[in-house]
Design a protein around this nucleic acid. Structure first.
Lengths: 349, 349
DNA sequence: AGTCAACTCGAAAACGATTTCGTGTTAAAA
DNA sequence: TTTTAACACGAAATCGTTTTCGAGTTGACT
């Protein structure tokens, strides 16, 4: 194990001062060519790399971005991370991942663990429990401490931070329109409970479209899943909910599900109940992931551009950090990215 | 925006010395109760948190773990990250993610970006291109610099580092046995090219089992996919390869695929070609993910315990870092975790 | 009254790097 | 010969924290 090289080590070894070494390595013209050569050669030999921690302390910036997301085993979030990491790396930043597991407490802990100098800014998507509690003081505090936050997907308004979202209402209308144009007369929705704001908005878009187009709506058409209790792990409960849903709504011929997991699970139950897809009942899901692509039949979905969202959110954060460093204060930006429909085989049109 | 609190700031404000503040906050008995109270109250008011960067510099340890993986939009890797993050967080460590995207160059860059003081140790799974190049000097160098590495899944032998793997040969034999016991007579394999060492080992297990059980084997039974060219994105090529594979091997009645992506794609092609699953042809995949669970029909798979592997790999790294900090040198450990078969509907038995 | 311990606290070094501001040497200009 | 500028380098502060060591004050005990 080699001794790790530092400026001091090089300095004593070469019998010059630390400042000389530092300057030589940065090609300062204060230093003569001969000593520069000597120092550089020695540094290369010992594979010297400036210590990042020391630099962070000196410069008061770490070049680290903290990303806190509700789940990691999740197609959409990983595509976003992919975009973030790509943009961040290209701009000299590292990405530290924190997982809230949809828990308020873990979200707070993660924020605290990182908000003590480890990072220069946060990117995050709010945990469901936090949305449910409607307690956002931890966000306000970290912003108040001078750490910028950029939120995506599950964002909060009324917070001094940039956001990157899709237009959930519009995308929902598109989805339901797709179903309508494929011949559906009675369209149901599988969504989350209202405290999940994206679920709520998608539900609103759904209802609005039905109303605008004189399509029938009844409360029983909507299944609001409380997956605080469920989660991907015990899909058993979800299935039983779906069985009773289909029995209550034998007349439904189109289903809009606010995520692909709900969609494929609903399809499974429907097939079990004897429905043919898309002949008897058609499906469209939100968020295009592996599930949709490889479902049977392949699921028509609203595609959210996760990677692009990731890049955008990283760009916003880095921009904000830069300008904050210069003392400028930028007004919060809201970026809305476009969704598009991917037509596959669960819809006729 | 509040001024960020530091020891110095508290000290000048309260007209005591920095050392007094530091000690008071740590409840040192050197400090009188009255000043302790005063200082603590002030610190709380200003929400003082010790600056992690300064601590890292002082203690020569960052409490950060660097994780470098080939892909993030990937079920298995994310489950591993989940396990890592869980264990790391419980033990006071943060996780920095680096993505190699299967590229040698990006792997080296990521290693370099982090190996300059940002982290205390690495967890990684080797990029395919690196395996192909068979150039591992960057790993050797970082280990030589005193940064411990723990590898999982795609690991390297002959490197001074701990590893966490599954017994690919044994798992493969189990898989083929499952097919055999379900009545398959001619069993094919969809695998990677040999430079991907796990692919190679799984292929070896497959051949060994056939041989041990007097089952037929011919070269044409094996499709070795070079997905340096393919990747999840253009599955088009994979499909064409599969079409020609099935046409060359009309007699095959069982297929073992070394990952779930190959498996479901093969199933899709097979269905297209008129095979009924599992009546005409049976399938088993490696690595249980969302794809397998929601494929049609649901895919029988070998399940790798990603989360457990993540926890284990984090445990090994933290143990190694601790003992290295104490100056002890531990011998490399190799942990083999068990796989198990999850019987679903692509096999008869 | 003198000694000594117990209490409180502060000064300073250390981690590794950057940067400002000297300072001494040399060579050119007056 | 003296002034001055260019050149080459070093000392020291700084970032925020911890920790060792020393020092001053107080009280008790001989």
């Amino acid at each position: 194990m080699k001794p790790k090289a530092s400026l001091k080590m090089i300095a004593t070894e070469l019998d010059v001062s630390v400042s000389t070494v530092s300057k030589a390595l940065k090609d300062s013209k204060e230093i003569s060519d001969s000593t520069k050569k000597k120092i550089k050669a020695f540094a290369k030999l010992y594979n010297y790399k400036p210590n990042n921690i020391a630099l962070s302390l000196k410069n008061q910036q770490t070049n680290n971005i903290g990303v806190i997301i509700p789940e990691i085993v999740h197609h959409f979030f990983t595509t976003v991370i992919f975009g973030i990491e790509k943009y961040a790396n290209e701009h000299g930043y590292n990405v530290i991942i924190g997982l809230s597991n949809e828990s308020f407490k873990k979200e707070v802990i993660n924020l605290d663990m990182l908000a003590n100098g480890s990072i220069d800014g946060f990117i995050l998507s709010v945990a469901k429990e936090t949305l449910f509690n409607a307690d956002f003081h931890h966000f306000e505090e970290t912003i108040d401490q001078g750490l910028p936050i950029v939120m995506f997907d599950r964002v909060l308004d009324n917070l001094h931070c940039d956001t990157v979202v899709v237009d959930d209402v519009k995308a929902s209308k598109d989805a339901v329109r797709c179903l309508m144009e494929s011949g559906c007369k009675k369209i149901g929705i599988i969504t989350t409970e209202d405290f999940v704001n994206v679920g709520k908005k998608r539900y609103e878009g759904y209802k609005a479209f039905l109303h605008e187009n004189n399509l029938p709506f009844e409360e029983r058409y909507a299944l609001k899943v409380n997956d605080a209790a469920i989660g991907q792990d015990n899909e058993q409960k979800l299935e039983t909910m779906l069985y009773s849903y289909f029995r209550k709504n034998p007349d439904i011929d189109g289903i809009y599900a606010v995520n692909e997991f709900y969609a494929v699970t609903a399809m499974k139950v429907a097939r079990d109940l004897g429905y043919a897809i898309p002949k008897d009942i058609q499906f469209i899901g939100f968020t295009d992931g592996v599930l949709s692509k490889h479902a049977y039949p392949p699921l028509t979905t609203i595609s959210q551009p996760g990677e692009k969202m990731g890049e955008k959110v990283a760009e916003l954060l880095i921009r904000r950090m830069k300008s904050q460093h210069k003392g400028k204060e930028v007004e919060p930006t809201r970026v809305v990215v476009d969704t598009k429909i991917i037509h596959r085989e669960t819809t006729k049109a």
